[in-house]
Each structure stands twice: as C-alpha cells, then as structure tokens.
Design a protein around this nucleic acid. Structure first.
Lengths: 333, 333
DNA sequence: ATGAAAGCGCTAACAC
DNA sequence: GTGTTAGCGCTTTCAT
C-alpha cells in the first residue's frame, strides 16, 4: 500500500470494509478476503492477525460486492402465490432449511393473484441475480415464462408437473389424484359424489380428474374453513342425497365436518368426506379426515438440491421428479 | 465511446448489461441508467430508443451492482423462528405486501431454535446490506443484539414489547394477556384453572401472567393439535376436576376440544377452553373457540412502514407501537 | 439533455 | 504466502 496516499479511514457511521481490516492487520485487502474464503492459504500468524482485526472492527463482508465481482451470489429466490395458506409452508420451510445448511439465503416473493404484479416481481427477482428460482404453485403468464427462460437462471417449478417445464420440476400430476379419490369413493359404494374445490389451477385439475369419470356437483370456493361449511350447505340445497364430498383442502373438509355435525348428518355413514393436504390436525379431529397426502417437505428438499447442484456446477440427472401422492384412509371416508 | 477500443459484445450466455443496451441505442451507459431511474431527464426521442434497445436485449438491470454503487438496496430482511407455524404468517404476508407495493423485496431467514445458527444467519443478513431488518417472535442472544445494533441498520422487533428495543418495536405485552384471560375465567366462576402452554418465550410469559394471579396446572408442549389432546389427558390425570384451560394456541385448543368431546366432557359446561391466535377455523368449529386475538397483519404493515420511512430518510415518530389484543368471547368459554 | 471519468467493495488473475 | 492490478455493472459527480 502506498503510504503517501493511504485510503482514508472510514468515516464514522459507515460500515467497515476489507480495507479497514487490512490496515489494522497490516496486510493487503486480498489477504483479508482470503482469510474469510480460503483460510488455509494463509499462514497461521497472518490469519490470526486478520481475525483479530475483523473482530475489532466488527467487519461484516458486503456480500453484494463479492457477488458482483465473482458473479456468484448465495441468493435463491422462491415465489409463492401467497404465503398465508398452509399448503406450501412445509415446502418453503424445508427449502429454507436445506438452503441455509449450505449457506444460501432465501429471497421470498408473493406473486399475489394479479398477473401484472407477477411480471414486476419477476423483474425484481431476476435483477437480484439469484443462483436459482423456485416457483411454487404458480400458473405463470407466457410473458413470465419467457422472461424466466431468457434469464438463464436455474428454475425449479414445484407442486405441479406440466407438460413443458421451463427448466426443472418437482411435483405431481393433479388429475390422477381426483381420479384415485373418485375410484375409492365408488368402491365404497358412494354414488352421489360432490366436489368443493378452490378456484386455483391445480385444485381445478384435481376436480377435473374427479369429475371427468362421473358428473359431480361442484362449487368454486376459496380454500378456507368457512368455504367448507357454506359449501356443504349449498350442495345439500341442490341435492339432499349427496353421499360423498371431495374437498380441495383439509381445511375445507374440516368445515364440511363441522357443518355436517351441526346438521346431524353422520360422517362417514351418511356422508363420506375426503380432503387434501393432510394438515396438522387432520389425523386428530373426530372423525379423522381421510385425505390425500403430498410430501411438501420432500418437494422443498429436492428443489433445494437441484438448485444447489446447478449453482455448484454439477449436472442434474433427473430434471423432472414426480413425488407422487398417497390416499390416507381415515375415519371420514 | 472510443471506437478503437470498444467494449466487447457480450458473450452469449452472459446477461445483457447497460453497455449492451447503450451500444444498441447509440447512447452512453449513463443514459440507459437514466432511462430507467430518471426518465423525465431524457428527451422523448432518446428515451424511446433506449426503451426499444432494452426490449430487444431483454435487459434486466443488475440490482446488486446498482445497490453497491448507490449504497441503497431495496432489500428488507425478516427473521422468524420457523415459518411453519400459523402464527406469524399474517405478519409476514402483510409485511411482504406492503413492501413490494413500494418496490422492496423480502429476504426471509429462519432462525430455527439453535442460537449458534442465529449468529450465522444474522451475519448473512447483515452482509446483504438490507435497508432494514424485521425480527419476528425472537428472543435474540446478547451477541446477536450487539451485532444488530453495530450494523446500524434499521431494526424492528415484532410480536413482543421488551423493555429495551434494539431500535424500533411493534407488538404487545404478553403477561397482561394471561392476566386478562385469568380474570375472565374467574368471573365466569371457574376455580380450577389449567394451562397448556408451548415452550417459547412469549407463550411462557402469557402463562406466567395467567399463573401469577393463581396457581395453575401447566404442561409444556409444542403448539400443535396433538399437544392439545395429549395435554388435556395429562391434566385430567393430575386433577379430574379442572374446569378451565388456557391454551397457548387455537390449534392446541382444538385438540383439547377434540379430546374433551371424545371423553364426553361438555364444553363449556364442564370445561371452559380459551385459545390464542384466533386462527382461521376458530370461529367456525363447534363449539366456537373463545380466544385472544392479535392483529398480526397490522403488525406487519406497521413494521413495513417503519422500515420504509427510515429507508427514505423520514423520521419515525413512534419507535414503539403497542397494538394490544382482544379477548374474543365465543362458545367455548 | 447527454457524456466521461471515477469508484462502490470485493475477488480473479497474475505476479513475486 | 502475499501483494498488485484490474474490473464486476452500475450510478455519482462533474463537465459540456
């Protein structure tokens, strides 16, 4: 370092930089960098001095600067429609867990339901140059798909298995679930089948799989407890002899159970109820809810490993993973 | 631009930069920057040309680079213990909504329960130089507090109102809730009161507020449905004449209701049940759950506005906001 | 209204 | 082992 023109000491209030640490430890800036990133390249003595200087200055490396220079960030972005539904939580949690076990950070975006917002959000995300993007439960616009593909960032689409993934995908097909539930209920001898389905893309496809095989009552509703109560009331108003309901969420199923109880309808004797999601309470309520279980944690974990593999230069063998589903037989059907 | 030494065309595979756009639009790089950030400083003609070039190149600005140079990012970090509890979801959602309405992005960290992990996480977060950090439902280590304070980044602690906030705080005091529930149950004539409480800091303080006024049965349990069923069973084994239970979550309360129903215990006649959180299903189940409601959305919205105010250079008048709570009387007590 | 030069904080590449 | 130089992509500052 040229002593005639030393870098000025940092002003108070500004964060410490490599140079502040370097000056204190009497080494060059790159040595500080190496102390953090490649410590075994340094002599024990230097390392010691640098570490002491880091502690004294309270230095925290500016990761943005490092990412810019090395073109390697440790940011992974995830996009969900909204976080306040219980459905994707397991996925987001296991995703985050797996990521920060490897030192990656999660940038979370809520796309909401307006397509216009989605494009703005994607721009902001792509602008952050994450090492990967995980899309969860989204029907993306053609424009969005184009942007994502053009960004040449590893992308994992989850909770769904479309015919043409942008890049990679982990999830399951939704129609077969509807079909499986339908067959199950038929085998139980149920004949007047009904559906209470949320209005999102995937729930609609499950309902289609259920309904394609046989005509069924159907009410579009958000995936809430209240929808379940109200939905059953409405279905019964249309046809009092309904003997089975397939709900697009266990929360809805719980509402149906509650409404049935209030009306003195016996479950499963008079009415079989099947939910979706196998939520926390589903096994415990009375009667326990028969439901379709999907391993959301596994989806998150696989998505994380796909992104990390790519980030670290490894090839991903299976770019499309079907995690399947399980029909969990309990008391309600 | 010196034609003898032009910046090389971008290699295929690398993202477009200001320079690529600039070359195409026959302007300088800074003009591209202005087209995006200060469009009214440019002539209509130039603006047009730049915009066309942006569209053709599929340019998405590298926000990291911009943030580095201008020392202004649009990143806000939030830390939760874990995302997979229903409690903080409303807060995170309204936080995100408010933030991205103003063009800010959310960096989400899960601190987990290991204190060691917390420090690593905080370093990663501080290293991302967010414009603000929102701490939700965390009891932070002294070391963590020090780091946060040293980072000189606006901090909002939420869901709790400690005696000495690091910087700003939005939440409520927990002891008074326990006290209010206790008084309510006493007024209903209940005399053998019990608590089923999760083992986190805040739940423990609510239980303390409840118990300080009178001795009460108490079982530490995670805030799950299963804890409710099992908790009630255990409490009854200790004292069969218990006539009221205060649960640290409505999920626990639902478990208690279920267990009571299974045992033929009438709620509220034989047993009064009070929950916490006013979750989605709480008003709808039978009997509807009497609970303590806290406006999580409001907490998120206020936290967002505090951070944004600071980020944009405005002073925050009230650095500590108490959003209070409400005892919602329903059928279960 | 537009541009040239400089530099944010860091690390790759190349010395020695 | 350690240092020097340069430059990631952008925007600030100063000039025209």
């Amino acid at each position: 370092m040229d002593p005639r023109n030393p870098r000025p000491r940092r002003r108070l209030g500004a964060a410490a930089t490599v140079h502040d640490v370097a000056r204190l430890a009497r080494v060059s800036a790159i040595t500080v960098s190496r102390a953090l990133n490649k410590p075994d390249q340094l002599s024990g003595d230097t390392l010691e001095r640098v570490r002491a200087a880091i502690a004294r200055t309270g230095y925290t490396p500016n990761l943005l600067a490092g990412a810019l220079r090395s073109a390697k960030s440790r940011l992974v972005a995830a996009v969900v429609p909204t976080i306040a539904g219980p459905v994707f939580l397991d996925t987001i949690q296991s995703l985050t867990d797996a990521l920060d076990a490897k030192g990656y950070q999660l940038l979370l975006g809520q796309a909401g339901y307006a397509a216009s917002r989605e494009d703005v959000l994607l721009d902001a995300i792509i602008g952050s140059r994450p090492v990967g993007i995980v899309l969860t439960g989204m029907a993306h616009s053609p424009e969005g798909r184009r942007r994502l593909a053009a960004a040449r960032i590893p992308i994992v689409e989850t909770w769904d298995l479309g015919p043409e993934p942008i890049d990679m995908a982990v999830g399951f097909a939704h129609e077969p679930i509807g079909k499986a539930v339908h067959e199950y209920l038929r085998r139980l001898g149920r004949r007047r089948l009904a559906v209470i389905s949320a209005d999102d893309e995937r729930a609609r496809r499950r309902a289609a799989g259920f309904g394609r095989a046989a005509p069924a009552e159907w009410i579009a509703a958000p995936a809430t407890f209240a929808s379940g109560r109200e939905g059953l009331a409405r279905l019964l108003a249309r046809d009092a002899r309904i003997d089975a309901v397939f709900c697009s969420s266990d929360l809805v199923a719980l509402g149906v159970l509650t409404e049935a109880h209030a009306r003195g309808i016996a479950v499963p004797h008079d009415l079989a109820v099947v939910g979706f999601g196998d939520l926390q309470f589903s096994a415990g309520v009375v009667p326990a809810i028969t439901t379709v279980s999907v391993d959301g944690k596994r989806i998150g974990a696989i998505a994380a490993s796909m992104i990390i593999d790519r980030a670290e230069g490894r090839r991903v063998k299976n770019r499309v993973v079907d995690v399947g589903f399980a029909l969990v037989r309990r008391a309600s059907a």
